[in-house]
Design a protein around this nucleic acid. Structure first.
Lengths: 244, 244
DNA sequence: TAGATTGTTAATCGATTAACAATC
DNA sequence: TAGATTGTTAATCGATTAACAATC
């Protein structure tokens, strides 16, 4: 009962989805609650496909074309979109701009989300400079590090703050989402402080399980785990050396 | 039929698992084939939990304790392990060292896997220096970049190679797994070359869909997508500003 | 034996796929 | 009307959970 509330391995974050499943049929589905987790996880891919279509000057698209761009089947795309509403026209297709806006709203990207990053090492540095974050409706509002040599330096246009007042920093910046690129052994402690201060979403790159209260959502990205999953299939395929 | 062979959004990589499901019951389950994808994705977490237990001097453990460390339920852990074999003792528990070795073998970590990284930008640099890769049974055998200013520099103890002979590089190094940290617009082309040269596993950090032949496994990590999934739940919870 | 804990079976649940009626 | 394509329903499939018989 406690284990279920922790971060799933491999970035699934299944256990962290609340409210899903507590309605047998169609009742009480307000504000996007009730969208299946698997569907939510695919929405960013659809949004990107729509962005690409729009950038290519496509005005009207079909489930077939859009699904191809997103790497899923047309049936799955239509099923997924049906959880958001009816935004297509039978016999015609989808208006790219309109559907794009609807998916953005469904994902909660209508308002800018404020993001705080803790751990300005190699990886944190790279993520802070990653253009995709600001480009996609997020605002990086603070960088934090425990190392006095790093505190005070400017990274991605922000002065790195010390780690001794996370609560105050969250309060001042209004951050609701945190990115954790700290060493594994401090990740849980930092996470606890952030959650106590009001953060409700955590994206962690630190290996290991993060325990959070039920109202907090955790996504875990673990590079070593991903490689190990690839190794499994490599092995199942016939191990040993490669070419030559 | 073609869309199903592409990389899933959000690091799921479901579609890339071959051979699963083609045996109704227990028949023809050789060399780890037949382990459900969801189970495979959790094995790295179990391995880490076992490493931690071993490091803490634990000799014998239970599904309860191990599941707690890994952030899953005891029932799920036992169910998952049952797909690998019977490595526990009823009424007693699991021998940490023995189970750890079995999970390592199941994951294909008995042999070292050779990994090649393409795209030595901010993120590629950070990943090349990430200790977790070498620590966990992988050998980083080559770094590649297209930028002449980067080629020839030494990163993580390796001289960065040019991108003009990926086939030769794969052949010389025997790499079977590739990490892609290139710009999105060249990821597919680089991937095609690597796959043609014999790479069978790809971990991509470039946003967008990668198309690969059926024998190749793709895992996609997309930071922007992860943040968007967190934004969905943030919104569902009640949007707007945070504290203060 | 009595207590503990696994491995497995059965029940439930959720996700995917296929098919088609609605409708443009 | 004829052709196209959605949104939905039903069927299938896989994953999770719960319960317990096997067994140490």
């Amino acid at each position: 009962m406690d284990a279920r509330r922790t971060a799933a391995r491999g970035g699934t974050g299944r256990g962290a989805v609340r409210g899903a499943g507590r309605d047998g049929g169609r009742v009480a589905r307000r504000r996007g609650e009730g969208v299946p987790p698997a569907t939510v996880a695919r929405l960013p891919g659809y949004l990107r496909a729509l962005d690409a279509a729009a950038a290519g000057g496509v005005v009207l698209t079909s489930s077939q074309e859009l699904a191809h761009r997103a790497g899923v089947t047309p049936a799955q795309l239509r099923k997924d979109l049906s959880h958001l509403g009816s935004y297509g026209r039978r016999g015609v297709g989808y208006d790219v701009q309109h559907l794009r806006e609807q998916v953005r709203v469904a994902l909660g990207l209508a308002d800018v989300r404020r993001v705080l990053l803790v751990g300005v090492g190699n990886l944190g540095h790279a993520l802070a400079n990653y253009a995709g974050i600001a480009e996609r409706g997020f605002s990086l509002v603070a960088l934090v590090d425990a190392d006095p040599a790093v505190v005070g330096t400017t990274v991605a246009g922000l002065v790195v703050e010390p780690a001794d007042d996370l609560a105050g920093l969250v309060a001042r910046t209004g951050a609701t989402i945190a990115v954790l690129t700290t060493p594994a052994d401090v990740a849980q402690r930092v996470c606890d402080e952030l959650v106590a201060a009001g953060v409700v979403g955590v994206l962690t790159f630190a290996p290991g399980t993060l325990r959070v209260p039920p109202h907090v959502d955790v996504r875990a990205v673990d590079v070593a785990s991903e490689l190990q999953i690839l190794a499994f299939h490599d092995r199942a395929r016939g191990a040993g050396g490669g070419a030559s």
